[in-house]
Design a binder for these strands. Sequence first.
DNA 1: CATCGACCCTGCGGGC
DNA 2: TGCCCGCAGGGTCGAT
Length: 291
Amino acid sequence: MPELPEVETVRRGLAQWLPGKKITDVEVLHPRATNPRSIAPLIELRGARIENINRRGKFLWFTLNRPYVVLAHLGMSGQFLIEPRSTQPSSHARVRFTVNDRRRELRFIDQRTFGWVAIDQLVMEGGEEIPNSFQRIARDIFDEKFDREEVISRIMKKKRAIKPVLLDQSLMSGVGNIYADEALWLASLHPERSANSLKREEVDRLLTSVSRVMSAALKQGGTSFDDLYINVNGESGYFDVELEAYGQDGEPCSRCGTEIRRIAFGNRSSHFCPRCQPRRPAKKVGTKRGK
DNA sequence: CATCGACCCTGCGGGC
DNA sequence: TGCCCGCAGGGTCGAT
């Protein structure tokens, strides 16, 4: 559920409170709360001091005064909440982190249990220490070292439809179903066009759209449809009112008035304007097709 | 390698 | 009222 703007909103909230805190206790309340690839049980974190709260794509990681990190993914319904210790945790609370703060504690809440918290090893990549798991997770579009030209080239080699390519976290991380649909709408590209049929200019425009849509969403604190996505203080984001495509099936396209349509493919739904986002690129004069 | 579908869960709203 | 189905912001895995 949470995509880059929502995860970044959570990161900012955590970064205001957590750095400098010492983890005094960790209580795992659900067996699925820990990723099986965690290199150690979370109780090992006891005694560690939290340094910085970082993010790559949809992954959060806390650096510690130790050679490993806390790595977390919110999945579809995960939340980090900073709550008074005196309050009863939600029935969906999965992990409780007690720190050296007498009033509040950090809780990981997750209704659907697709999210997790783990311990991951730090490794060197390009002169910089990153969690080991990030070898398979590409940099996101806001990363200083994001290589735009390289990503454009890789996208243009893919034979799949552009929508699943946008969702491929090993090419570029952070984009999920909402912002993929929004970016495709903004760039006027049909979600089922094969990536290798796109011109360089179109892919470039698409990446610009991804960046613009996610920046705009971040300014609103992300997209919330219900209380499943909320920030560390339990507050919703307001970008849902600005959505142009996602969830807008049956509503008129704000550019041309045509009804936004919803189609299902690749195990998810896609929303697009059939007029602004044509299946076929606008007439290619002089091209030959057929045998 | 690249691609695709199934799968992992809980809870909700709609149709009957 | 209640049941069943489809659907939901995610990633991972195995088969092809």
